[in-house]
């Protein structure tokens, strides 16, 4: 089976600045990978590039077996990105937002209703306009939209941010559930302990390059190809 993600010397330019400067990355299907690195390292750009929102200017990039440069729209239809901003319509209710995004992804309305219940947004909250929600409730709504899409690749940028303890636990259970269903998850989080508990592997990015990769607890400097053949702890590495 094709890997979920395969990048070779991937370069993404934001203006003239190389946000990704020759990144190599392999992620197997069903794997949960924590992406770490200092601010400005290129973590968010990596997720946006994999979602097809930022073009890969050089190198090779495949997502879910599709060439990201040639099939960007098909890739987008199969991935879900939780960014730092929610992507929700403030004037629509929680339920209407979820139903719109679920139907846009070709999912039935029942998928939105199930996601509402799963995220604890059913009942009174479902009819509240998103613009009136607290930060945490808004984050839950964005997560519910993600769940309703039922995508094969989850790209989560700081999914725990703005959530209370129960909300953070809920995120963890969603990630575990998605992985069990066979979805692949790339997780950018500054909550390193939580990310470590969820992920089978972590990749460290510095200056737009993967500088280390490996099973949690056994980090290795990354070479030109930053996967570690023969490492039994690294699940499903090509």
């Amino acid at each position: 089976m094709d890997p979920a993600v395969r990048l070779r010397s991937a370069v993404c330019l934001l203006g003239r600045f190389p946000a990704l400067a020759g990144l190599d990355l392999d992620v197997s299907r069903g794997e949960v990978v924590a992406v770490e690195g200092p601010n400005g390292a290129g973590k968010t750009t990596l997720l946006r590039a994999l979602a097809g929102l930022v073009p890969v200017h050089e190198g090779e990039a495949e997502v879910l077996g599709l060439d990201l440069r040639r099939s960007r729209r098909r890739v987008r239809a199969r991935v879900a990105l939780l960014g730092s901003t929610g992507g929700l319509y403030d004037d629509l209710s929680v339920a209407d937002n979820l139903r719109f995004w679920a139907r846009a992804a070709g999912r039935p309305q029942s998928a939105a209703d199930e996601a509402l219940a799963q995220l604890g947004l059913d009942g009174r909250l479902a009819d509240v306009a998103v613009g009136r929600l607290s930060t945490g409730q808004r984050r839950r709504t964005a997560l519910a939209a993600l769940v309703a899409r039922n995508s094969e690749l989850w790209l989560l940028d700081e999914p725990h941010a703005g959530l209370d303890a129960a909300g953070r636990d809920l995120v963890d259970s969603l990630v575990v559930g998605a992985s069990r269903r066979g979805a692949t998850v790339l997780l950018v989080s500054h909550e390193l302990d939580r990310a470590a508990a969820l992920a089978s592997r972590r990749v460290t990015i510095t200056g737009g390059r993967a500088t280390a990769s490996g099973a949690l607890g056994r980090m290795h400097p990354a070479g030109p190809v930053d996967v570690l053949p023969g490492e039994p702890e690294v699940a499903g590495v090509a």
Partner: peptide, 10 residues
């Protein structure tokens, strides 16, 4: 993020 969400929506 709504424009990004629209582009990702399929």
């Amino acid at each position: 993020g709504t424009r990004d969400a629209l582009r990702l929506s399929g």
